[in-house]
Design a binder for these strands. Sequence first.
DNA 1: TTAATATATAACAATGTACTTATATATTCA
DNA 2: TGAATATATAAGTACATTGTTATATATTAA
Lengths: 114, 114
Amino acid sequence: MQKLTVGIEKAATILKLLGDKTRLAMMKMLETHDYCVCEFVEIFKMSQPAISQHIRKLKDAGLVQETRRGQWIIYSLNKDNDYYPLVHSLLQHLPSQDFKLQELEEQGLRISCD
Amino acid sequence: MQKLTVGIEKAATILKLLGDKTRLAMMKMLETHDYCVCEFVEIFKMSQPAISQHIRKLKDAGLVQETRRGQWIIYSLNKDNDYYPLVHSLLQHLPSQDFKLQELEEQGLRISCD
DNA sequence: TTAATATATAACAATGTACTTATATATTCA
DNA sequence: TGAATATATAAGTACATTGTTATATATTAA
């Protein structure tokens, strides 16, 4: 059961988390596809630990969830989270990031294709 | 003319601004009433410079606007801002903070009553 | 079992944030 | 004009954040 509204303090925590362009882009991207860490590393041209640390923050807040698939760990949005309605409505205001997925596919670097 | 979506980077900047419980509460409160700095000082039990600095950030981002009324400066939401649709939809997920206004009135500290 | 790959964690440095106190500016009113 | 009030700004400090590099852990495949 999800709440209609969310406490101000907790909401501020979520917004602070999303107030980083890398994490915000990740969330928008996860709206349409799942991704593994190594794909994000390619997409954001950022070190693997940096990506891993961003994802951990999202995971600790319950915004994303992980599933291991062999040697890869696939991340997806956790739509059951209490804050998902807030997050969802905010993501609607952002432009699709699917062009990044396309770039990845053109480079032959897409891994977690379903 | 407002845009349908907003760049990821700029959106992250806005969300980071709102990712502070004081500023987020201010924005929610400004949805229903205008406030002056001295009222926020009472409500948030915070020093005047601290409040002033929070408001300046909101103002610099164009989220709020000021109007001088005598010795007071009244702050209100800037609904013409490009990011207002995003901000508005996100505030809908937060509980009303009107009880804070009531407290203020009960203490006889309400200033900027229209 | 060993090498290769994917991910996580730890320790650190640079930078950013949010307060504080002290002080400046603007307005009102006696 | 001068005192009182409201607000802004500056400088300093404590703490948080985000990257880095080095290293640990987990899985796969030879």
